[in-house]
Structure formats: C-alpha cells, structure tokens
Amino acid sequence: MEVNPTRHWQKVLYERQPFPDNYVDQRFLEELRKNIHARQYQYWAVVFESGAVVQQLCSVCVFIVIWWYMDDGLLSPQWLFGAGLISSLIGYILFDAIDAGAGRKENRRTRWADLKSTLVFVAFTYGFSPVLKTLTESISTDTIYAMSVFMLLGHLIFFDYGANAAIVSSTLSLNMAIFASVCLASRLPRSLHAFVMVTFAIQIFALWPMLQKKLKAQTPRCYIMVTVVFALSALAGLLTISSVGAVLFTLLLVSISCLCPYYLIRLQLFKDNIHGPWDEAEIKEDLSRFLMTDFGLGDILSDEISGKRLAASLPACCIFGAHHISVLL
C-alpha cells in the first residue's frame, strides 16, 4: 500500500488508512509511563504498621507461654482466671473510653448483647470442659502439638493485619486459633485448666486484637507503648522457659519491625513497572451504567478504555454489540 507522508496515522479502526497492518507510529512510546502505582514509604510509618504483626506474634507467644506454665503446674487456673477477668474488665472499659462510645453507637451493639455473649462463652466453655479434657486422650501428644502449630501458623497467616488481600480471612484465622487452643487445652491435667485455657484463648485471640485496632486508630502513641510493653513481657515470659527461644524470638521481632521495612523501602528503588496503551483495559466504573443506557455506550467506552486493548473487558463488551467497539488499537 502506498504511504502518503502528508497524512498522519490515527489510532482508529473505523477508517481506511494508507499504512500497512504492522505499521508502528513514531508516537507509540509517547504514552509510556513508569511506576505509576508505586508508593513512597516512610520508614517509621512502615515500622509503625508492622506493629500489628509484632503484636500478633507476641499474642501467640504469650498464649504458648501461659499454656506451658499451666501444663507444668506453675500457674494455677484460678489465678489465671482472675487475672484474665480483671484485664478483660479493664479492656472493656478502655474499649468504650477510647472513642467515648462512638463505635458502640455506630455498631448499635447494646451492653445486654455483650453480657449475653460473655455468658454464652463462659457457659459453653464450662459445660464442654470435661469433654475437652477427655477429647484427645488417645491421640499422641506429638500429633496434638503438630496440629496446634499448624493451626497457630494458619492463624498468623490468615490474620487481618490491615492489608487488602484475598488470603486475609479473619474468621478462618480466629477459628484456627480456637481450634489450636482447644487442642492444647485438652492436654492439660484437669477440666478446670481446660476451661481457663480456652477462656484465655478467646481473650487473647478475639478480644485483644479488637482493642488493639481501636487503640491504633485513636491513640497511636499509646499503641506504640502498648506494643513495646507487650513484646517485652512476651520476651520475658519466653526467657523463663528457654533462652534460645527468647533470642530467636527477639531476632524475629527485630527483623520484622526494623529489617523488613528497611528492605521494603530499598527494594522500592528497583521497581520498574511500565504502563502504556498496550495494557489491558480496566473498566473502573460500575457495569450497571452500561445496562441502564445503551445508546451512550460509544462515548462511555471511549472514555473508559481510552485506546487500550480490550482483552480483559472484551467479554463484558460483547454483550453490548461489537459495532460499538470502534476504538480498538
């Protein structure tokens, strides 16, 4: 086909143009953009955010330490129950005091509902504790340990740390933690121990993260302080059991809260994402707009797609008739 130098190439399919099919225009790379979605992180902000992970690791650590004490008979269940009760009451008051009851009004959750939940927890745990005691008698202790470790790891993996990812499932995470606690509680010497252990598991895995989330949102300074104190107490508890474990745990915490943010920021520099007209089109707006008005489709499509290839959105667009899609590259 004869190329006419006076005519400019246009990125349209609906006109016959004097260019070969494989023609690449000079302006092709003009629309190239780099790293448009890359975010600039502040080191201390990242460290602050990593506090959630540190807290959860510490929770698991504290739970295991307490279980160890109970199993060895170093900690009486009455004492733990009393301590748990007092800390729960303090936490409950704090929970309302932090935002002056705004969250409660928003959720429309009454105190009666809280009391009912508490009663349900205590009654069911107490009622089932003799069953829990004999539940895993015939199963080998190693199997129980392995199961608990897997479940606690799962709890840590699926926990909602605030990231918006598909893997996050707070339900699954909480359920895994409860499963692990029931497994471990069944190894304890008496049914009262099992009851107190499961109650403690609810406090530390269900109630404590809720309070943390609120603290983090309302009073960040307080949150940092609480995190540090909690981490130190977990470390101290672990130190009484095994010094090697304590050292390893310290290294883990330090690497998560200091090294990992540093690496994240360093690695941001190597990020090299290119964007351009060859990207798959993304339909950002709701598809119901298309369904409502069929006649304005051409305009909408040209707005939305803006000359990008229609690979991803083609199935959606096929519904509205192929003749509308005139802006394909």
């Binding site: 009912k116 939940s117 349900v120 927890f121 069911f124 745990t125 089932f128 069953v131 829990l132 539940l135 895993t136 199963i139 339900t171 909480l174 359920n175 409860i178 499963f179 029931v182 497994c183 499961v198 609810i202 269900a206």
Partner: peptide, 19 residues
C-alpha cells in the same frame, strides 16, 4: 460474617465432633 460467639461455639463443636 459471623458473630464472635457464633464462631466460638461453632469451632468448639467442630473440634469436638472432629475428634
């Protein structure tokens, strides 16, 4: 999305039934 007490009782029963 389940409530906390539903989750707790459900998981407790699940563990017991499983074993």
């Amino acid at each position: 999305s389940y409530d906390l007490d539903q989750l707790f009782i459900g998981t407790l029963l699940f563990t017991i039934l499983l074993f």
